[in-house]
């Protein structure tokens, strides 16, 4: 079995199994816990529902915090959007998803894919450099760096595979797929899960504060 066969076969296969099982495990393991009840009377009878808007409103920090957060928020948006475009926009990825789900859609030209890949990588670098430069602000633990690594690795290896830098294409493709397998397998266990938690976390706080008539 070649490395590519391993990557495209058992590696990605098990990674997906871990991804699905682990993600559901962690989500349910938290969400099925008891719900605390706030028995106090809400400020407005139906005001608590307004709290759900925090899920959306927190997408951008309030003007009050602009100075402190604009670099990071901006970079984080660039990273998330560019990565999303790369993940769902370039043809090999669409083919991968098609192979998995059957769904298909038109892809981007390679030049655009490469451009977004580079933008994503650059923003990721910008974020980690800031994290390293300001240890007092970030209180980073190894999980932060590892999450960064598993996110950066597919971007780097994908770009390398495309540009035919380093090992032969099929080896590089195998390494790329393996790096994605690592990302999938790590996803349920680290902070990457914030892609789910943010909804619940924001909603909870939004509702808790809306209960008191405070819009956050």
């Amino acid at each position: 079995m070649s490395l590519l066969d391993f990557a495209r076969g058992p590696a990605i296969h098990w990674a997906l199994i871990i991804l699905v099982a682990g993600t559901i495990w962690r989500l349910l393991g938290v969400l099925v816990l008891t719900r605390g009840a706030d028995l106090s009377r809400p400020r407005d009878a139906f005001g608590n529902f307004k709290g759900y808007r925090t899920v959306f409103s927190r997408a951008w920090p309030s003007g009050e915090f602009t100075t402190a957060t604009r670099y990071q928020t901006g970079m984080a948006y660039v990273f998330h959007i560019a990565t999303l475009i790369v993940v769902i926009g370039i043809v090999p990825h669409i083919e991968f998803i098609t192979g998995l789900t059957g769904a298909s859609w038109p892809g981007l030209p390679n030049a655009a894919g490469v451009a977004f890949g580079i933008i994503a990588l650059a923003s990721l670098l910008a974020l980690i450099l800031r994290r390293i430069a300001k240890p007092a602000v970030y209180c980073s633990n190894w999980g932060d760096y590892f999450a960064w690594f598993v996110m950066a690795a597919p971007l780097v290896t994908g770009l390398m595979a495309f540009a035919h830098i380093g090992p032969r294409y099929e080896t590089m493709l195998a390494i790329h797929i393996l790096s994605v397998a690592l990302l999938f397998a790590w996803f349920p266990f680290g902070k990457l899960m914030h892609s789910f938690w943010f909804i619940f976390s924001r909603a909870q706080s939004g509702v808790a504060y809306a209960h008191k008539g405070v819009r956050i």
Partner: peptide
Amino acid sequence: DSVPMAQFGSGPKI
């Protein structure tokens, strides 16, 4: 099956 397609019968196992 195109090159990037993973090689497994996904549905039931997932």
